[in-house]
Design a protein around this nucleic acid. Structure first.
Lengths: 239, 239
DNA sequence: ATTACCCTCGCTATTTCTGGGGAGTGGAAA
DNA sequence: TTTCCACTCCCCAGAAATAGCGAGGGTAAT
């Protein structure tokens, strides 16, 4: 039924492109090459800002943002817990909000079938590359069978380009945490009290406090919990 | 100079395999197919436990663990901040510990050239798929040119298999957080004080405390900071 | 209809954290 | 050589979080 399209020109275009506008153009080309309804790349950074590119109707994108669907969308929620590609049929659509979201999406030009490839970035970014189409389950299986590998590769390219863009957009002025600061925050993240951390690091609690404060300052955090949350979501510490 | 090998049997084998032992076997097959020295898959979970598979000598693996090279290895450190493939030449080898590590690695059968593809998992896992070889820069560039795409795809398969293994190994008994608990932890992670969070959620501070406590309990956390760190690194809340 | 979980509110005492000071050493970079 | 930064130690007062108790209404599933 399907015949596999040659995607190498798309890959080359993707290689040569730059910025979100370029990715937008590639999305459209890819959609046409694959003969499906939509290709969407959606990106959420650690600050909760989202942007992306793709072929969804403007109306729907605006609606998605306005209604804060990010917090509802079961594809986002589901993918956030995984790291392999997810078919939309496989995510949890139970729950009132999710079903309402689905209805709204279908009413706004989104196809009923979807295949999303998630990626997590080093600073808490989260991106989703999605192929979307309106068709039967059988057709969709066939599509995935044929293009599954290519989609993974293309998603990878999108991520790379988007990250380059992100790095240019917001060059991180974060000064790295010192080793002791990392130690301190790490132990705190593990649930130790200041007294326990100080003991574990064999330093006085006062000294420990200096580290915590300086880490808080460097991270621009309002309090210790905030500092740890920031450090964690930016990959500066690991639990 | 190189001629591209047909990797489809490897992909099929990879598809059919199961568990770490299977991946180990595939690694060896892949190494042979690619005519390079080593293929290694290395996995670190949120608890800091590491395991993996590949063709590195046993001695070196043991040494890596014993000497806690995980915290020193510039490839790990570098990849942790990125999300696209990284050539070993591109990571930061300045610093005494890093140089000593390199010397030790080369002495233990590790090739001088490497290409590593990082992936972050939903629960703070971090995995690295690495191709390693001993050759000149020119040869290595050629290798990457030819097999770069395939490596990305294969890395993806490894990740998928490893995650399946991980999920079987440690089935998550976590009960989901309730919406209010998510709200509470999210605001706390953003640095708000309890009073501010209570006000933002339009509930009394006492009620808020109940949420925090029950979230703490569900997450098996020692204190609020711990709960937030766990929730964040398990992807239960987003900043 | 019972069970279970979610949401909401209350009190008190104790422990812990935060913010404001100041001071000295050593190492690495400019 | 100077300058910056990481690392270490100290005091105190006020603010915030924690532990322990208890209570009632709503909704959804069994």
């Amino acid at each position: 039924m399907y015949r596999k399209a040659d995607l190498s020109p798309i890959l080359e275009e993707l290689d040569a492109t730059d910025g979100l506008d370029g990715l937008q153009a590639v999305s459209a080309g890819l959609r046409d090459a694959l003969s499906i309804d939509h290709i969407v790349y959606h990106w959420v950074d650690s600050a909760g800002d989202q942007y992306g590119c793709g072929t969804y109707p403007e109306d729907w994108i605006q609606r998605y943002i306005d209604k804060q669907y990010l917090r509802v969308d079961p594809v986002i929620v589901g993918c956030f817990q995984r790291f392999h590609p997810v078919d939309w049929k496989a995510v949890d659509w139970s729950g009132k909000a999710a079903r309402e979201f689905l209805t709204d999406a279908l009413d706004n030009g989104v196809g009923n079938q979807g295949y999303s490839i998630p990626v997590r970035g080093p600073s808490g970014q989260f991106a989703l590359f999605t192929a979307n189409h309106n068709c039967s389950d059988e057709e969709w299986s066939e599509f995935k069978e044929i293009y599954g590998h290519d989609l993974i590769l293309i998603a990878h390219y999108f991520n790379r380009k988007a990250l380059d863009f992100e790095e240019n957009r917001a060059p991180q002025p974060v000064r790295a945490l010192s080793p002791r600061e990392v130690d301190a925050l790490t132990f705190l993240a593990l649930g130790y009290s200041r007294a326990q951390v100080a003991h574990s690091l064999s330093i006085s609690e006062h000294t420990l406090r200096v580290y915590i404060e300086s880490a808080r300052f460097k991270l621009g955090a309002l309090n210790t919990t905030h500092a740890i949350a920031k450090a964690l979501s930016q990959g500066l510490i690991v639990m």
